[in-house]
Amino acid sequence: MNILEKLINILKPDKACSSCPQAKFGACQKLAASLEGIKKIAVVGSPNVGKSMTFNCLTGAYANVSNYPGTTVEVFRGKTILNGEEFEIIDTPGMYSLMPISEEERVARNILLNEKPIIVLHVVDAKNLERMLPFTLQLIEAGLPVILVLNIMDEAERLGIKINIEAMQHELKVPVVATVSARGEGIDILKGKMEEYVRTKICG
């Protein structure tokens, strides 16, 4: 994603909300209301795994990205086009499991409970898959439409970690995608899988 495009996106008046860090003062509520009825895609996962970065890649909006857990404390909404149709993408605060410990984790869980997302992107840090996979299993067990996003693949590769995507898909029975969202790598594949998923889930 090039910076110019992002800037243009931010400057567009109807995107005002996605770029203001305070999602509740007026404009955002309006946008949220106008998005009612639109199909939703939730981005969830542990803190600091690149959820907001992935969200930015998918929407072209800018949600805050920083290198510490707990950057995002409120849900953040943007839009993307899949198969020519507009979808709302929701970036959520990081959560470690379906059992919330802090306030912002509760906010994130409520998205899953209340907003009926048609896709749940579970973003994980690929080098810490062992620690994060139990949450994927929880989400699948919850009957949510999960796509597993193995992000930060660059660091995992540097550590010599190899992940067999096919085997993962076979075991989990959900789509799995490897990405390096910091460099925008794998995002087109992710989009492809999302489109495929939407096609089979909704039309098929």
Binding site: Y96, S97, M99, I101, N128, E130, R131, M132, P134
Partner: peptide
């Protein structure tokens, strides 16, 4: 219990 929840949140479980 809250302490246990925090430890589990960090993914610290037997065998790690």
């Amino acid at each position: 219990n809250p302490t246990l929840q925090k430890v589990m949140a960090m993914g610290v479980l037997p065998g790690m």
